[in-house]
Design a protein around this nucleic acid. Structure first.
Length: 258
DNA sequence: ATGGCTCGTGTAACGAGA
């Protein structure tokens, strides 16, 4: 099974990119974040024409998540049942026995802001819920835009970013908390090139100068991590016309042992 | 030190993202 996550920064603008990317990379499951549209506007027909089923949970202007899959999506859950949230940031579904959670973690804006406190509370509630999910789903994937660079090697200029939102200690501790329930960062299961990032600022030639952060992650439960044979960031669509500021992350997971 | 770019909204700037 190939599984990917991609923050598209508006599915209305990026639908052609998603369709092109799926044509080039026919993954089994694609988690999308920042669709930025209500469900009545979701481009289901175009996605189905590309050979994918889809579930989605959106809202006007901000946030919004979706899961695309070649195989049926069952047991769909919108939002974290342990957290009352007006923002549409979580979507879960089961595909071929694998529990897939698509997450768009709050940005946090600045460490002294209300949004930062919301981010930390949201992440703690996510940890509590995922710990429960892990008990009933041995094969659990949590893929999405975490808005956290786990380590300094995931930051183009750690000194400039030190202490700021996306890299602060409390955010990193919250991400470690998710690993503490038995999840692994698929990207770090393998040797990777230095300065591997998944997001680059639109401004200041961020992509061309590789001034980026690795903030989009695929976390895998133990049985899936054991079968994961690769995890890569696909920079190609970041070079296309009118790109998202994020690149897709793709994990390859082998078949269950007989 | 600040803003730099792109999105949605709505049709002009502005909030938000990261």
């Amino acid at each position: 099974m190939k599984l990917a996550t991609w923050n598209v920064n508006s599915l209305k603008v990026r639908l052609p990119h998603v369709l092109q990317w799926l044509a080039d990379n026919p993954v089994d499951v694609l988690c999308l974040q920042e669709t930025k549209m209500t469900d009545d506007l979701f481009p289901l027909a175009a996605i189905e024409a590309a050979g994918y089923q889809a579930v989605f949970s959106g809202q006007k202007t901000y946030n919004g998540v979706a899961i695309l899959s070649k195989l049926p999506l069952t047991d769909v859950v919108k939002n974290n049942p342990r957290y009352d949230d007006l923002q549409q940031r979580i979507l879960a579904a089961t595909v071929d026995g694998v529990r897939v959670v698509c997450a768009y973690v709050p940005n946090g804006q600045a460490v002294d802001s209300d949004k930062y406190a919301y981010k930390l509370g949201w992440l703690e509630a996510l940890r509590v819920w995922l710990a429960e999910e892990a008990l009933t789903h041995a094969e659990l994937v949590v893929a999405g835009d975490y808005n956290i660079a786990p380590e300094d090697r995931d930051v183009h200029d750690p000194l400039a970013w030190a202490g700021q939102v996306l890299v602060s200690e409390r955010e990193r501790a919250a991400l470690s908390g998710l690993l503490g329930i038995g999840l692994r960062d698929a990207f770090r299961l393998f040797e990777q090139a230095e300065k591997s990032f998944s997001w680059w600022d639109y401004r200041q030639l961020g992509f061309r100068l590789n001034k980026g952060l690795r903030i989009d992650h695929i976390l895998l439960s133990g049985p899936l991590a054991a079968r994961c044979s690769a995890c890569v960031i696909d920079r190609a669509p970041r070079k296309w016309e009118q790109p998202s500021d994020h690149a897709p992350v793709v994990a390859t997971i082998g078949a269950r042992p007989a």
